[in-house]
Write a protein that binds this DNA or RNA. Structure first.
Lengths: 343, 343
DNA sequence: CCAAACATCCAAAGCGCTTTGATAGATCAC
DNA sequence: GTGATCTATCAAAGCGCTTTGGATGTTTGG
């Protein structure tokens, strides 16, 4: 059933039917009601393709996912982010189109999206430190918003980010207050902007107390369970092992806990752990009392907000870029306690 | 730059340019080359919307994700599945559109997708035992393929599934061969078809050795870390605790391991664990020697294959439904060993 | 040398919608 | 009673592409 058939059946012009359905005022209430009813009865939905062509709006938002084997962006947090964003999209009538693209095709992919005009805007994921994709998208002129930020990009753009620096600074402070002095950082890949900022926060807190960061206690890598495990194994073999671990992901934190317990140490007594917690739906941090003390920020909520931000950007073209900085909350669980080395 | 402008610039008709770009034979090689070059130079890409309208093909495939809070389908395996499917889609020129839909809107969502004509086919996720969505899609007449199967649906449809029954039957057999007699099943939600089949496999293996399944050893629930942990805590409190655990997800297996180790037991000696392993990119089962003995089947590969299957279905309408049954491999790791209770 | 076959190209219709510009008829002001 | 204003409707153009059905010139066969 299409517009033509529907209007023929009603004995009205396509114009009138279209107007009636789209809520234009120049249609009598009576006919509008009649049209609505018929549309309902025949389960009429305007053909998206035709509508998009006529209006110039695709009513879709693109997410380009780098499909590299190196850093699997299709990672655990992605599902939750998408889930949050998708919620808003469906509320606002947008579709979400996902493109998985090999790293070397990134540039081509964005240009293609712009030229093919099948999305009204783009969400950029996992920005690196001075991500070339941002300037690229600025040149292309398609609305976009970044989940995260990229240090060293001068021209303004829309983004939403967690205050990673402050979160890790506060977490480090918290451990320092508990008397810990040897604090290991089990960070994500530091070419990623968020990881870089977290390290800055960690270092800033140490510096404020006159402690020089020990390179032997700082790790950067893919945030897997095994990575967390290995980091502990290596540091516990040191002469002066750390009494606390600051971890960038709850998955790695699982590995950290495993290694700690395997070494016969008790978490929260012999060794303290703070992890960043993206509040993933399938990896809840304990029930009533959190297992881990954590810097928590829901990535699903981030998805929701970034979606809103981008939609507003799309629907009000010409406005200045929007930005939003979320503060993570520091929630205390059972994984932290005073340093055993406290004098 | 659109077709009109491009052809004007070339001094050719739109027809010829279109034909040249789409590889039709009635164009001289010389002009084709000229057209190709100009298209390249101006970075011309046909407008998807217009093309879709003209051809009647959207060149997109829809994934409808139930957005229930009850069972979070946006779960860890989803990212990997999508990643595999997306790989094939981009190779074949399809876009992937994701719709997150609340459970109560499922029916409406499918009808809408069909009426709006913005996808050429649909992938159905996480089928329940006699999933109503399948018959619904059959009635609608939009091509679709199911990741998994639904018991008790008579009319044929396209699906791709892991042989869950055989996998869990073999795993149970493997444990029985090692002398285990008290084997716990830590299963997923058994309204899900895959979980139901796994239990059938488990029960079949026990029955073959004349063992009656003990309801006190069988669990069904959301496959979280804490769920795995709790299952062990409960069973180890029994008079006659199990010596082996058969687990439906590697995330739950982490929890099982944690509880086992916390109880002072050694995995692979005092207690054996076999888990199903979806071979997730960010949750690798150990390095050289797998940590867990596992029934393994890559969900990413499943995504790839199901995508191919659906595309073939779309491009050859009228052919019989396609089905594919993947066998999981049973890989031996360090989590299994002879039963300590063996006489 | 002429009709048939072929190789290239083009004008125009059509995909299903929105939107512009017009047209009737009703209502109003005076 | 008449021109102006509103109201409710419609015909037709246009979005950017593909595709049908010619048209034009060139070869080819006999």
């Amino acid at each position: 059933m299409n517009l033509k058939e529907l209007s023929a059946h009603l004995g009205l012009s396509q114009t009138t039917v279209s107007r009636a359905l789209n809520g234009y005022p120049e249609v009598s209430e009576e006919t509008r009601k009649r049209v609505m009813q018929a549309a309902d009865q025949f389960n009429y939905r305007p053909n998206t393709r035709a509508k998009a062509l006529a209006t110039g709006r695709a009513m879709a938002i693109g997410h380009v996912i780098p499909l590299s084997t190196q850093h699997e962006m299709m990672n655990p947090i992605f599902g939750d982010f998408i889930s949050g964003a998708g919620e808003i999209y469906s509320q606002s009538g947008y579709d979400m189109v996902l493109s998985l693209v090999a790293d070397e095709d990134q540039s081509r992919a964005y240009h293609e999206m712009a030229a093919k005009r099948n999305v009204d805007g783009i969400v950029l994921h996992a920005p690196e430190m001075r991500d070339r994709r941002i300037t690229m998208l600025q040149e292309i002129g398609l609305p976009f918003a970044v989940h995260g930020r990229a240090t060293d990009i001068a021209t303004p753009y829309s983004w939403l980010d967690v205050n990673n620096k402050s979160a890790f600074q506060r977490a480090t402070d918290f451990l320092l207050d508990l008397g810990h002095r040897r604090i290991a950082l089990v960070n994500g890949q530091e070419s990623m902007d968020f990881a870089f900022r977290r390290r800055r926060g960690y270092e800033a807190a140490l510096a404020a107390r006159g402690i020089t960061p020990d390179p032997g206690l700082m790790f950067a890598g893919e945030m897997t369970e095994v990575y967390g495990y290995d980091s502990v194994r290596r540091t516990q073999a040191l002469d002066d092992p750390p009494t606390a671990y600051l971890v960038s992901s709850i998955i790695a934190a699982f590995g950290v806990r495993r290694a700690v317990e395997e070494a016969g140490l008790v978490m929260g007594r012999d060794v303290s752990i703070i992890t960043h917690d993206d509040d993933l739906s399938y990896l809840r941090n304990g029930a009533e009392v959190p297992v881990f003390t954590a810097t928590r920020s829901s990535v699903r909520e981030a998805g929701r907000r970034l979606a809103k931000l981008l939609i507003s950007q799309i629907e009000n073209p010409g406005t200045a870029p929007l930005t939003e900085l979320l503060e993570a909350e520091l929630t205390v669980g059972r994984s932290t306690g005073p340093s055993p080395n406290r004098t």
